[in-house]
């Protein structure tokens, strides 16, 4: 098997002309005097497996009858060839399934955004201190405090199931956010009870004076 190619050149980021990598990693462009460090590697060639042709005794792919079946789709149970099969999460699915009924599964495979419920909780707490917005925030505290706790539990669940979330949100961060949200919840709860008692007293005194 032939060795992968060694990359010896690159394009100058300044003037886009082709340059050769020298003996040392430090490189200078003679055209625009750009200086930088360059590291080159041995990229692996991409191998596209188009699937083998099916013989008379072979099981054939349900989408490509002329190709030999090499896997079973975890979504539909159909026989599929190498061209159709897509690995995701340790299971093999057919492209047709991921395009139709399994679109939800496909969406998870190619997720481009990572939901950060821990940051949402922090955002909720910060909004308490922003002038003019905090007026609405104080009134609607039962809603966002409940949402905050749900988001925190979701963050805890995600940090245990998603390795990327586990790297970003540690258990200490979850505990600190829980303490902060707990203090805020308690303050709002005590404040609301005190306000209700105050209003009730004022209303009672109003009746008594009448």
């Amino acid at each position: 098997m032939s060795d992968p190619p060694t990359i010896t050149g690159f394009r100058c980021p300044g003037c886009k002309i082709g340059l050769e990598v020298g003996d040392s990693e430090r490189t200078r462009c003679p055209n625009c005097a750009w200086r930088g460090t360059v590291m080159t590697f041995h990229p692996i060639d991409l191998k596209i497996d188009g699937g083998q042709a099916a013989l008379s005794d072979d099981a054939a792919c349900v989408h490509h009858p002329s190709k030999r079946a090499e896997a079973i789709c975890a979504g539909t149970g159909d026989y599929i060839c190498a061209l159709c099969s897509i690995d995701h999460g340790g299971q093999v699915f057919s492209a047709e399934y991921l395009n139709t009924a399994g679109a939800n599964t496909a969406g998870k495979a190619f997720d481009r955004t990572l939901d950060r419920p821990d940051r949402t909780v922090r955002f909720y707490i910060i909004l308490c201190f922003i002038p003019y917005i905090n007026v609405i925030w104080y009134v609607g505290w039962p809603v966002w405090v409940s949402l905050g706790w749900m988001k925190l539990l979701k963050a805890r669940r995600l940090s245990k199931s998603d390795p990327l979330m586990a790297r970003l949100v540690g258990p200490t961060q979850i505990v600190l956010l829980a303490i902060l949200l707990g203090v805020v919840s308690l303050l709002f709860l005590v404040g609301s009870i005190y306000l209700m008692l105050f209003l009730f007293d004022a209303w009672s005194e109003g009746f008594a004076s009448d």
Binding site: F10, P43, I44, R112, T113, L114, R119, T120
Partner: peptide, 16 residues
């Protein structure tokens, strides 16, 4: 504020 945009770069075909 509430989510991160994720981009993954695999190492297998990195050239430079």
């Amino acid at each position: 504020y509430t989510s991160d945009r994720v981009r993954r770069i695999r190492y297998d075909r990195v050239e430079s």
